[in-house]
């Protein structure tokens, strides 16, 4: 079985985000990029599935040359092959999904793992979009996964609990934290990944329906009011919450 993983390349979550002078992008200075944290769970699950059921794994990333770093990370963790779908332009989620779907189809992958969300635009949609473009079954925000023959059983996180969901291959799964513990790349894996070739192709062109009008910083909150430094501040705090803010 061919198992694919889609990985995105995103600013480190600790990065300070500033807006570029055009008001439509972030200022790239001082930003370091990493593999999207949720995609590490996706990679781990792909590797575990291959170890259990056999098959071949491929990591796919759409973006600029810089995304190769993230693909190397996937290879170093143990993914067999990597494909870069090259595009330097802004793309909306559906247009990303169309290019990924095209590649997944040409790879003949029956099972595809995504992260639940890219921590850049925080959309959490590309897995679901891709599944519908391919006509694959899809379960999102998955915290446990099992495959038995053709049958898949997952648990997905919902408000106040979990849903146990059943489906069949071909399928797309989007990984939530808790699904597994991603392995560290071994030194051997890192060395081997350096030698492996990353297949590059132009990403399928697709129209953008979503236009960025502007990007801005959230309105800065006024620094809070320190009510006091000891227990004597408590009645005052409760009074404010009760009478002024009227929230309790």
């Amino acid at each position: 079985m061919k198992i694919a993983v889609c990985v995105s390349h995103v600013p480190d979550t600790a990065s300070k985000i500033n807006i570029a002078s055009n008001g439509k992008n972030i200022d790239q200075s001082g930003i370091t990029y990493i593999i999207n944290p949720y995609d590490e769970f996706a990679i781990e699950e792909a590797l575990k599935t291959k170890e259990k059921h056999g098959g071949e794994t491929v990591a796919i990333s759409l973006g600029s040359d810089a995304n190769k770093e993230t693909l190397r990370k996937a290879l170093a963790m143990g993914i067999d092959n990597a494909v870069l779908l090259k595009d330097d332009k802004y793309r909306d989620s559906l247009s990303v999904a169309k290019a990924l779907a095209e590649e997944i189809k040409s790879q003949n992958a029956e099972l595809v793992f995504f992260g639940k969300q890219s921590v850049d635009f925080d959309n959490s949609v590309v897995g679901q979009l891709t599944s519908e473009l391919l006509g694959y079954n899809c379960i999102s925000v998955v915290v446990s996964f099992s495959l038995d023959g053709n049958k898949i059983i997952c648990e997905r996180e919902i408000e106040g609990g979990k849903e146990v969901v059943e489906t069949t291959l071909p399928a797309i799964i989007t990984a939530q934290k808790g699904l597994n513990e991603p392995r560290y790349a071994s030194l051997k894996g890192i060395m081997a990944a350096k030698k492996k070739e990353i297949l590059e192709k132009p990403a399928l062109e697709a129209e953008n329906f979503v236009e960025v009008i502007s990007m801005k910083k959230p309105p800065s909150k006024q620094a809070g009011r320190i009510i006091g430094n000891d227990v004597s501040a408590v009645p005052e705090l409760v009074k404010i919450l009760h009478e002024e803010a009227k929230v309790i």
Binding site: I17, I19, D120, V210, E211, S214, M215, K216, K217
Partner: peptide
Amino acid sequence: IATRPIYAGKALLDIKINS
């Protein structure tokens, strides 16, 4: 015009859907 938080709320994005 839709506003949505991005980068974990460190920025806000205004977008317009053209379809």
